[in-house]
Nucleic acid binder design. Structure first.
Lengths: 224, 224
DNA sequence: AGAAAGCGTAACAGACTTGTAACAACAACA
DNA sequence: TGTTGTTGTTACAAGTCTGTTACGCTTTCT
């Protein structure tokens, strides 16, 4: 899950980044609405945290711009104001929720979880299984049989995405979009490199390979 | 499936080419409407991705030209504009769908699948079977009995096309058009060569031949 | 029978793909 | 502050794919 933070106050921005990262989200923080909108056009986000008061442009105007561009990423507004008029203005401009400063991080996380909940109410599995391979999203651990796999955060996300699509070709471009949040070709062997590292832990120490390369496309994970 | 991309921005064009190729489509990218229209007359496409803003000619005008020439290939428009007027103009000129930039590749692929779906409620099979021969389009694997066939991407496409037309003579010209996207005679033994390679994997290791040559026409695949 | 056309396949070369090691930048942490 | 782990980039080797050419076999036709 990728969260875009648009907040001009450095202290709040860093606090949000750290808090959300620890909760397992990826964040990108920008301190101007212009930079935020630019980020939205080149990366894929699951939600936006938008400050109401921003330098140069009101947060509500920024939101209107975003919605006018047909971007329907959920937006949570942060506001210091309390009047009903202000809330209404934000919600009418297309915000999904708002939070009044100062706020508790736990409440922010709870509200983020609500607005990022997929409309198709896909039940978020906490544990994925594929043959002898298991992945626990709560504990952030992965096992193959009894062996614990010591994965880096990125490797974990990569394996997580693959395991959500067992027996299906997952292309490199889709991985870039879903795992890295990229909407461009990095023109490097980024995916290959990390797939190589993941395989070194998931496949190499065992006799059967679960990750197969599909030349010209990407990779498939499957049992057996 | 062959997709024509008409997009003047090189980065977007290459990104589209890569993403669609990995997803199993063949692409041809042109950066001017003139080149795109020319390509339409010499090659066979299942869909066109057309940028709204093109050098020298508006994408909508290019689309009108295409439709005026009685080409009814599905067209998906890419537009940076958002007003309802622009959408209506594109759709009225004959676009089948539109997508507002910036877009996620996964959404583009989903929309392409919709507009290329054949009008006659033909359900896209994910698995083809013919006697002991099976072909899985999702996993991109082919088997004859229990034996996995290790096919190159081109061989896979060739077998896929043959298996869509069991017991039917498939001519070389049709293969050139459907598998290679050619509308001209390469004057080489291109088809023969690849058919030979395919047979070496599909027929040679087994006692019965499934691919038969029809002299003067092409090939037939059938059980027994 | 002989000629011509159709076909199969081996060999080749060039282009492209892929996996991996090595390195640099950076953040986390004690 | 140094250490450790993570991540992205570069470089390179190995392997794969694909179109062309060449050549021999088979079929067809006169």
């Amino acid at each position: 899950m990728h969260i875009l933070i648009v907040e001009d106050d450095a202290e709040t921005g860093q606090y949000l980044e750290r808090g959300l990262r620890e909760a397992g989200w990826d964040t990108q923080w920008h301190d101007t609405p212009q930079a935020g909108i630019l980020a939205l056009s080149s990366h894929s986000f699951d939600a936006v945290i938008l400050d109401r008061m921003l330098p140069g442009m009101d947060g509500v105007d920024a939101l209107r711009l975003i919605r006018a561009a047909n971007v329907d990423t959920p937006v949570l507004m942060l506001t210091a104001r309390t009047s009903i008029d202000d809330r209404v203005e934000g919600l009418e401009a297309g915000a999904d929720d708002y939070l009044i400063k100062p706020f508790a991080l736990s409440e922010l996380i709870a509200r983020l979880k609500i607005i990022t909940r997929r409309p198709k109410h896909v039940v978020e599995e906490t544990q994925l299984m594929l043959g002898a391979l298991t992945l626990d999203r709560v504990q952030r651990t992965a096992h193959r049989g009894d062996v614990a796999l010591d994965l880096s955060p990125l490797e974990f996300k990569l394996l997580d995405y693959l395991m959500q699509h067992p027996g299906e070709v997952v292309t490199r471009t889709i991985l870039l979009e879903k795992v890295w949040g990229y909407r461009f070709d990095p023109k490097t062997s980024l995916v290959q490199t990390h797939m190589s590292r993941l395989r070194a832990k998931v496949d190499k120490p065992f006799d059967t390979e679960m990750i197969r390369t599909v030349r010209g496309s990407g990779y498939v994970i499957s049992a057996q």
